[in-house]
Design a protein around this nucleic acid. Structure first.
Lengths: 104, 104
DNA sequence: AATATATGCAATAAAATGCTTGCATGTCAA
DNA sequence: TTGACATGCAAGCATTTTATTGCATATATT
């Protein structure tokens, strides 16, 4: 997994909306995904390519239509490798801050 | 929580390294955090401000030093509100894709 | 075969980002 | 009180990102 690509892909609100759309309706076409968004088809296609490059979306051609499917694996991997280890320290870190803040 | 700010903050490898540094050594000063990074102090300070704006880092002044503390809450919230719901569908989505790919 | 539909590709323009340099401010220490 | 240290502020520049426009290609429909 390319961590940086995944984080960068997630850093854009339009791309997060696209992932949400696919969560609601997996297998959508480019045209279908455009309907919710206020920008050109080409712009949406670029966002989708970005999501594909990050491996967050997989595509299948069906005739002249390109179907888009959510791939939740990279998001899960980010959680495993990156977020979970922060959660473990959560309470410790917070109490550290409080102690220092009240320290003088 | 400002979701967009948090995602944008996480989208930069230097800022992720800073969070990692704080995970290893919570309460570091700006100067200390600079030592691992190959850029000017001012650049690091800008990254830290970005992390502060995203509420990922909390700071406390101690004399002329500014101490930086990791705040894991936004990361946890992102997991809760944004990642967990993707995980739930993980297996379903993957099998959908496989079925379609093998479909003809 | 001709036309409409779904998408791709590429050049650009505008905006955001990342980093630098230079100077200012506040705190510590001799 | 003077000089060193830790940080802040701000302007400028290069790069990246986001979106647009225009044209090309491939599939479907009539």
């Amino acid at each position: 997994m390319n961590t940086d690509r995944v984080f960068k892909a997630l850093a854009n609100p339009t791309r997060r909306r696209l992932l949400d759309s696919l969560r609601a309706r997996n297998g959508e076409t480019l045209g279908g995904l455009c309907e919710n968004l206020d920008m050109t088809r080409q712009a949406v296609a670029q966002h989708l390519r970005c999501l594909e490059d990050a491996n967050l979306v997989a595509t299948i051609w069906q005739g002249r239509e390109k179907l888009h499917y959510l791939n939740p694996v990279p998001i899960h991997e980010i959680y495993d490798r990156w977020i979970a280890k922060y959660e473990r320290q959560q309470l410790q870190a917070l109490s550290d801050i409080k102690q220092l803040a009240e320290g003088d």
